[in-house]
Structure formats: structure tokens, C-alpha cells
Nucleic acid binder design. Structure first.
Lengths: 344, 344
DNA sequence: ATGTTTTTTGTTATCGATAACGTAGACCTT
DNA sequence: AAGGTCTACGTTATCGATAACAAAAAACAT
């Protein structure tokens, strides 16, 4: 009773008494088959448990239902959540996800692109917008939708959906300035590892530079983790001249920083302000919520997937979507009484 | 100069003045080609930028380099980290990851299996060990390595790598008993959504039942999140008879619970104990570290991937690996002075 | 009724590889 | 030197579909 070997299109064709092509057309919803025949074939295929070989189909069509996605890591919830957000929409459109984790090694990117192209994917998704000219050229000529994720640029390879990291950094800087902070510090990891973080830092510095203020930059040589934030903060607290607010690479570091302050008996936000980035869910239950910029991770994934699906279907859409990143004014920062005369 | 269309095996063959088969053999490292010819072909292929079409190759060989993995969600760091752990080993073995997120919808599993089989994957990975008899039978007959992840069973479809959730629950229960807790509660989500959580709860109840103690079970109808833990805990704290310790579905809920206690002015661990599950990284920086069971997520992924690679290569190994889950005695629980006479 | 469209269906070539089998020399044997 | 075994390649069939073209059947027109 159980079909030993899976039914192939030929079996269905024979059973239905039609040619292979009719089955192919009927099942793909392509025109060229009468309704009666199509109904009969569809029912029969269902009954026989026939599923078309995507391998053969993709080879013949020179395109597959695979969407190849490359992210730096899955250990950072940001990327996991973005992909999670994409999944539903992709699945709905009948697209499979083939996943690469590059571990922030840009050298692997080029090899990955070549490898993926041999799978004739429906589309390619890369993280970030900083890619080698070779990769950009290669992908532009590949004739398939390419989406850059998590960051935006005016000159994407094809499509991009993300946030403007520089602007976010600047927004945060201006927010802190408005609160009255005048001695900011930034705690992150060494440059070169996370280009997006550097852009946020640049934006932050621009904002403060507008008021003639320098940002003290501290870099912890470690993974961007809770611990890095804690350790960097402990160093900062030991300094003779303490900053009045610390911006962190992300919420992980910021939370670690908050814990360091608590351990050191430094009151947040009275003695020092803390600002993060991402708006992790944990923030919803903290007694003292982090001041942070809330990135719409799941929504970003969904938006990216929608754009991709449209592009795959040949629909032209926006090429660039910069998602809003609201600043969440939490309880780890507080309006300061500034030295210069209080307005009103 | 730039190759418009990618080189195919035929181009390499022509360029090398040999047959297609010789190129195929040379590049795959299969015997049947002289060293001289092989060297020449390899160099030429490299130079021409030839990459074999995995689509065509897989179709012809009836097997691909794809490893299909199904997890419930990527919004739970557990699964993201397990996959992250698998990736490196898989990538090293030249295997691609094709990812499905089922959103805990078991009905989708069967369809997914059928779909994946048409890709002729090198192996299949499912989450959990509770699968329909139909799926089990189908996969057993599929003739490819199948690995069940995150949970273990004595009768896996093929291979399984995970943890013994029931045993972990029991371990935690015994640990708490040993500390002197006698009025335990459990806060989780409604049954049926997360089979593993139910197993842990069952183990917990067994442990306490051994001492003639019932576990009060509270279920919050929500996603397993920080908020669920907080809300469930607020309910518990309002009860006239308060438990002396609360076990949570996982660290997320436990952390939410801890926050609820703090907000309610209930001291942890003096007035109430808290125990979680997973050992999230955040625990490393908390001033009062959670008592929890530390699941080796990344290592589990790596172990699973290794087993899989071995199986794909035809090497027989252990069929079942239950990873140790040490109980981390944190600061959210404390030895209680029990009513019965203090020993020593 | 007969030619012209339009629809439906079938044939053949192709996608880019690999498996299985075939063949020509090189190298032994005795 | 005839026969046998290896080694190195080449030929042909096949994997399971789809594209492009061709033919047959049905619908329409005059």
C-alpha cells in the first residue's frame, strides 16, 4: 500500500492517461490545460502523494524556490529575530530558506555567493551594506533579486531594508543632549568588527560635536555581550572624571553596564545615565527600563521578505526601506539641570 | 573578459580537451583519472571560475549537500543558538542548512518532510522526539540520516541529541527539596504547546511527590516570555498561601518572576525562591544569579552536527546522546531551615 | 460546409551534471 | 607473441522535471 519509491510526474501522467507536460502544467497552475483535466490530475496527484522534485524543477527552470540568507551569527538575537520575521512571509510564498552564518568573516562572503548561485536561488539576502566591489558587481550581474538587510544605503546592490544606523546614533545623541548630558562616553568593541555599530557611534559623535562636546570612546576587546558592557563600565567608573552618561553598543552591553553600576553602588540615573540600542524584550519587565532605540526586528524581517517576494514575482517596489527606530526614553536617563540658565 | 554565463562542466572539458566525465571525476576526487590530467583540469576549472551546479549534481546523484532543519521558532534563543552551534560544523563539512520554522504547529511537520524529501537532502533534523507515527515511518523508510534535536528518547527515528527534560525537572526538584523547600509552585504556559516543558514539569512533580508534596501549577495563557513570568508571579504573590519556591518554564519566565517579586517588595530568596531553566547568558551579570539548569545549547548543536556528518559519511555512531544539564545553584534559592530536626 | 482561430494536448530537446558500461593502450605473464 | 589484467578515458542512458514547438481538437466565422 505504501509507495516504496516516491511517485514521479511520469507515474501521475500514466495514471491520468495524459502526457507528462499536462501534469506539469496542471500542477503548476500554468494555462494550457482544460479545467476538467486539471481537476482530474490535481486530485490524482494528491491521492498518489506526488510532490514534484524541486531539484529537477529548479534545474529545468534555472531558478529555484530557495532564498539564500547570510547573517553574521545566530547567537545575536537581532539576526535570529529578523530571520524569524522573514520566515513566515517566505513560507507563505512557498520559498525555502537556505541559511549561512558568516561569523563576521567578510572573506567568506564571496565564496558563499558563488556557491549559492549554483543553487539557482530565487533571491539572495546579505547582511549589511558594506560589500566588496567584486561581490556587488557579481550580484548586480546575476539577474536575481538581492536584498541587503539590517543597514541601508542610497546605493544598494538591488534592494535594502534596514535602519539608518548613523541617524539612530545621532538621534540618541540629540536626545541625550536635550536631556542635558554633557559628558558622554561610548562603550563598544574594537572597530572593524561591527560596521553598523561604528556608524551609530559616528552619528552619536556628530550629535555631540554639534554642541562642541567630545565623546569618550571605550572599547572592550571581547564579544559584544553582557560581560563586555559590565567590564567596560567597571573601567569607566574607576576613572577620576566620570562621564554623566554612557551609550552602549547595544542593550546587552548596556544591561551589563547597569549591573556594574549597581554592583559599584553608583546610582542610575542620578549619578550616571545609561543608554542602549535594540529594545530587547527584557526591557519590558525591568524595574528601571533602559533608555534605548527600539529596532523593529521582526517587522524588518517581514518587510524584507515582502519586498523580496514582490521582486521575485517581478513586481517593482521601493528599492530602499529605512525603518523608523524610535528612541525609548527609559528610566536609566533623566533630565539634568544644565549649567546654563534654565529655560522657562 | 568577464564570463557572461557561468562556465559549465562542458566548457571546462572542452578547454582541457577531455570528456565531461573526466572533469567530473577529477573535480570530485574520484579515481579514474591520471594525476597529470587531474592537476590540469583542476587548475583550469579554478581559472575559469567553474563551480559545479549543485542542482544538477544533486539530481544526478539523488542526494544533495542540503541538511534540512526544522525548529519551532527563532524567537527563542535556545533554537537559534542550537542552530548556530550546528552551523560551523556543517559548513566545515560542506553542508548547507535549509531552515524551517514550524511555529509549534505539528501539522506542518508532515508536509515539510514531504517537501524536503524532494530536495534529496543529505539529512533531516527535527525538533523534539514527539512525532506522528506517519512521520516516523516515512522517515525511517527514507533511507537518510534523521536527527531529533533538543529532546531524547530511547526509540529515536534514527539519531537523537538533546537533553532528558524529565530528568532535568526531577534533578531540579530534588535540588530544591534538598535545600529544604516544601511548598513548590510551577509557572508555565498551557499544556500542549511545549511538550518539553511538560516533561520537565512531570519530573519536578515526581521529585516532590517522592516527599509527599504537591506542586502547585500555574499556567499563563501567553507566549513563554519575560512578561508571562511576571504576570504569573504577580498572581501567585496575591494568594493567601504563598509557595516557598517557584519553578519556571524557563529563565525568561523566571527573570520576569524575579522582577515581579522585586516590584512587590517580596525578597528573593528570603521570602521566596526562584528557579529557572536554560542558563541564559544574562545570568552571568545578574547581581543575584538565577538558580537554573544550564542547557549546553551551542555544544548540543555542535554535537548533533558531528553525529550527522558522521552518519552522512556512513559512519555508525551513538544513536542517542543525552547531554548533561548541570544545576546551577544560584542566589535566588537558599537552604531553608526545615521543620524537622536539623541534622548535625 | 469550409477555412480560420483558439484551445488543448503531445513531442522533442534541454537543464547540468553522474552512473554504468565500453574500449583502447600499457603492462604483465608464460 | 597471444592472452589477460589494469588504468585512463570516453559513450550512452538517466535523474525528473520544463521550454519551445508541433499537432490535433474544438470553437468560431462567413
Amino acid at each position: 500500500m505504501t509507495d516504496q519509491r516516491p511517485a514521479k510526474i511520469e507515474d501521475v501522467a500514466r495514471a491520468a492517461g495524459v502526457s507528462i507536460m499536462s501534469v506539469s502544467r496542471a500542477l503548476r497552475g500554468v494555462e494550457g490545460v482544460s479545467d476538467a483535466t486539471r481537476t482530474r490530475i490535481t486530485a490524482l496527484a494528491e491521492e498518489m502523494g506526488y510532490t514534484p522534485s524541486r531539484l529537477a524543477g529548479s534545474l529545468a527552470q534555472a531558478t529555484s524556490t530557495l532564498v539564500a540568507i547570510s547573517v553574521p551569527t545566530l547567537f545575536d538575537a537581532v539576526f535570529a529575530e529578523i530571520i524569524g520575521g522573514m520566515r513566515e512571509t517566505l513560507a507563505h510564498a512557498g520559498l525555502e530558506t537556505i541559511l549561512e552564518t558568516s561569523d563576521y568573516d567578510t572573506a567568506r562572503e564571496s565564496a558563499w555567493v558563488e556557491r549559492m548561485i549554483t543553487w539557482s536561488p530565487a533571491a539572495l539576502v546579505l547582511s549589511g551594506v558594506d560589500h566588496s566591489p567584486a561581490v556587488r558587481a557579481r550580484l548586480r550581474g546575476a539577474g536575481l533579486p538581492v536584498l541587503e538587510l539590517w543597514d541601508v544605503t542610497d546605493d544598494p546592490i538591488d534592494l535594502c531594508v534596514g535602519i539608518d544606523h548613523r541617524a539612530v546614533g545621532q538621534d540618541m545623541g540629540e536626545h541625550l543632549l536635550r536631556l542635558g548630558y554633557r559628558a558622554p562616553a561610548y562603550i563598544g568593541i574594537p572597530p572593524g568588527r561591527d560596521p553598523r555599530a561604528e556608524k551609530r557611534l559616528a552619528g552619536l559623535m556628530v550629535a555631540f560635536a554639534g554642541a562642541g562636546i567630545d565623546v569618550q570612546v571605550i572599547r572592550v576587546d571581547a564579544a559584544p555581550s553582557f560581560e563586555a558592557g559590565r567590564d567596560g563600565t567597571m573601567d569607566v567608573l574607576r576613572q577620576p572624571e566620570r562621564p554623566d552618561v554612557v551609550c552602549y553598543l547595544n542593550d546587552h552591553l548596556a544591561f551589563g553596564g547597569a549591573m556594574a553600576c549597581e554592583a559599584a553602588g553608583v546610582d542610575v540615573p542620578d549619578q550616571i545615565g545609561i543608554a542602549g540600542f535594540n529594545g530587547l524584550n527584557i526591557n519590558n519587565v525591568l524595574p528601571r527600563r533602559l533608555t534605548t532605540a527600539v529596532t523593529p526586528r521582526a517587522l524588518m524581517g517581514k518587510t524584507a521578505a515582502r519586498l523580496l517576494v514582490a521582486a521575485i514575482r517581478g513586481v517593482r517596489t521601493d528599492r530602499r526601506i529605512a525603518m523608523p527606530v524610535p528612541i525609548h526614553a527609559g528610566a536609566t536617563t533623566l533630565p539634568r539641570l544644565t549649567v546654563r540658565g534654565p529655560a522657562a
